[in-house]
């Protein structure tokens, strides 16, 4: 039982890495908090239902479409709101409030358009029968989703470390002022990172029906807390630290569900608070305290 919990925890951990990745990328580059992150994930899930329902599109193809479309949607959205935010004095706090408003709008529009009933896609779409790992049976859909998550993490890694634009992005993450001083087009770099952040949330959404069960328009805030727990544990502003956070989160979630199931829903909240209090720098270290 312990081995099963640990293994499925690892699988979930990879998935939750993807859930937090986009949020952390946006925070790392722009120092703003996209509180609508969970709602973009929810929109990704609804896109997958829609594409599956109408065209029986395989989730992998849906994920590709969602990545492209969401990234493209992110660009104008960036230019509409973020430059104004970055110019403000307390952009971190203001971003929190602004994206909270956006979150409410997305949730409302989705509820109006699709109703508040729970949606799901049958898991067998991703392959039937369980996968055996170290003698433990895990649903194929879980392993598949975890695989896609790892691929997405690899994609972000390649972008940040192997491309020119990625190098500029890392420069902005280290110091926005100096990056601007050396002539980097700040808004271009940030807009693409913002778009990618939404795209990653979208992909995570496509696989949400398999990992989280059914999805409703109101799932956003709950996802946000989980995503925050993941990235705070794994170090804010460090996209690759997210992997560590995801694994810690996934494994503790599965252990809770196995041994203390009636209190398992408390985990994301408590983990988030505990890490912020005990080690506010995250496991890999970065200052978030001010005084």
């Amino acid at each position: 039982m312990l081995l099963h919990a640990a293994l499925s925890g690892l699988v979930f951990g990879f998935y939750f890495t993807l859930v937090g990745l986009g949020l952390n990328l946006v925070f790392g580059v722009m120092r703003i908090v996209n509180l609508a992150h969970g709602d973009f994930l929810m929109l990704g899930a609804y896109s997958a239902f829609w594409l599956f329902g109408l065209y029986h599109l395989h989730p992998l193809l849906s994920a590709a479409c969602v990545l492209v479309v969401f990234t493209l949607v992110g660009l104008p959205l960036y230019y509409l709101v973020v430059p104004r935010l970055l110019a403000a004095r307390d952009s971190e706090m203001l971003s929190l409030i602004l994206f909270f408003g956006l979150q409410q709008m997305i949730e409302a529009v989705t509820s109006i358009a699709f109703g508040t009933t729970e949606r799901s896609i049958p898991g067998r779409v991703l392959g039937s029968g369980p996968v055996r790992l170290l003698g433990q049976a895990l649903p194929t859909s879980w392993v598949f989703s975890a695989g896609v998550s790892l691929a997405a993490v690899a994609l972000v890694y390649v972008y940040l470390y192997q491309t020119r634009l990625g190098m500029l992005t890392r420069a902005v993450m280290v110091s926005r002022e100096e990056a601007v001083a050396t002539g980097i087009d700040l808004h271009r770099v940030c807009a693409i990172a913002f778009g990618l952040g939404l795209g990653l949330a979208g992909i995570a959404g496509v696989f949400a029906p398999f990992m989280l069960g059914s999805v409703t328009p109101a799932i956003g805030p709950e996802i946000n807390i989980a995503a925050f727990a993941v990235i705070v544990v794994g170090t804010l502003g460090n996209p690759l630290g997210t992997v560590l956070g995801g694994i810690v989160y996934g494994v503790s979630l599965m252990l809770m569900q196995t041994y203390l199931s009636s209190w398992a829903n408390l985990l994301p909240n408590l983990l988030l608070i505990a890490v912020l209090l005990v080690r506010p720098t995250g496991l890999l270290g970065r200052r978030v305290r001010r005084a």
Partner: peptide, 9 residues
Amino acid sequence: RLSGAYFAI
């Protein structure tokens, strides 16, 4: 002790 945004979350 946290900065504002983390306090809020």
